[in-house]
């Protein structure tokens, strides 16, 4: 699972899509897969009773369980429900983008997500960091912030900080308030300062908990840092193969899932780098051409022209 990434991704998406998305449904979509289930994964104590899933990892990501909340079709269905209730496409697809971001981000751990449920219960996992949700929240946090999960969250924090303009009051007024029906509605009842605080809250929460958990794990306690792939290896991690009901799933999607995903990933990277290269070359050419062009004649302001003419006539 990812921690602060789910809080910070909506700001990066907001920066790239601007008025084309509504922030609150985007954030809600980003939280949706874990919103009502995470407490049961970690367990909760109520008046002496400890309630917890008997098989937390399977409950959280697998089937039978609520792993379908991390599937793409779940996002599509909830978006259709949202569209059916409010009849506003921007609410529906903003939610969808957020939910997709969550489902795809969680493929980074060793358990992964059932992206194509109900067509297959295969868990798609990149396996970069250990899944240790079954050991409780504190061990999970210690493990996550001792492995590549820490790097992953730090990347999102850096990316969100680079996008700092989305946090400004001017940006909020110009892009968020006009596009988001929630804030439009809230604008009638609550002050702008409160709306701004609510808008910035996920960034605040993501950044502060990343720092707090990291200090807790490495300063207050001494969880060993292990940035190897699939780490930290000192924790008992659950892997997709441990609970994958479809380990030998015959569907073509599962049989070729990893090589195909790697191929698509490679293609996306190649296209991105090519575009970046083209853009850089384009900028360099434009600069060269601008330098090669003859400079336009100096334009005088009307007052300067009159002064020059007056000077000429008087002289």
């Amino acid at each position: 699972m990812s921690w602060a990434a789910h809080d910070l991704e909506p700001y990066v998406i907001q920066r790239h899509l601007g008025k084309r998305v509504a922030f609150m449904p985007l954030l809600l979509g980003s939280y949706a897969p874990d919103m009502f289930t995470k407490w049961f994964v970690y367990g909760i104590g109520i008046s002496g009773w400890h309630i917890k899933a008997s098989d937390p990892a399977r409950f959280h990501r697998g089937w039978p369980g609520v792993g379908f909340t991390h599937s793409l079709i779940f996002g599509v269905l909830l978006s259709l429900v949202i569209y059916g209730i409010w009849r506003k496409p921007i609410l529906a697809y903003s939610f969808l983008i957020g939910q997709f971001a969550h489902a795809l981000t969680d493929t980074g751990d060793t358990v992964g997500t059932m992206l194509f449920f109900p067509f297959t219960t295969h868990l798609f996992s990149i396996g970069a960091w250990a899944y240790a949700g079954q050991l409780g929240r504190q061990v999970d946090a210690g493990a996550y912030y001792s492995g590549l999960g820490f790097v992953w969250d730090a990347i999102w924090l850096a990316w969100a900080m680079v996008s700092w303009r989305v946090l400004t009051r001017e940006y909020f007024r110009r892009e968020v308030l006009v596009a988001d029906p929630f804030f439009k509605w809230a604008n009638r009842t609550i002050s702008e300062a409160t709306m701004l605080a609510l808008y910035r809250a996920a960034f605040f929460y993501g950044a502060t908990r990343l720092i707090a958990w990291s200090i807790w794990a490495h300063v207050v306690h001494s969880f060993p840092l292990d940035l190897r792939w699939g780490g930290p290896h000192w924790v008992h991690a659950i892997h997709s193969s441990d609970l994958n009901a479809a380990a030998s799933c015959p569907c073509p999607c599962c049989r070729a899932a990893k090589p195909r995903l790697a191929m698509y990933g490679g293609l996306v990277l190649a296209v991105r780098f090519r575009r970046l290269g083209d853009r850089l070359i384009g900028h360099a050419r434009a600069d060269d051409e601008a330098e090669a062009l003859p400079r336009p004649p100096l334009r005088l302001r009307p007052r300067a022209i009159r002064a020059a003419r007056g000077g000429a006539s008087s002289g």
Binding site: D7, Y31, R137, Q138, A141, A197, L198, A201, A202, F204, Y205, T208, R209, A212, W213, I215, W216, V220
Partner: peptide, 16 residues
Amino acid sequence: IGIYNQNAIYSYFEGA
């Protein structure tokens, strides 16, 4: 607060 008591950083709602 979060370092002292991890329940304070349990969810987005507490942070907000």
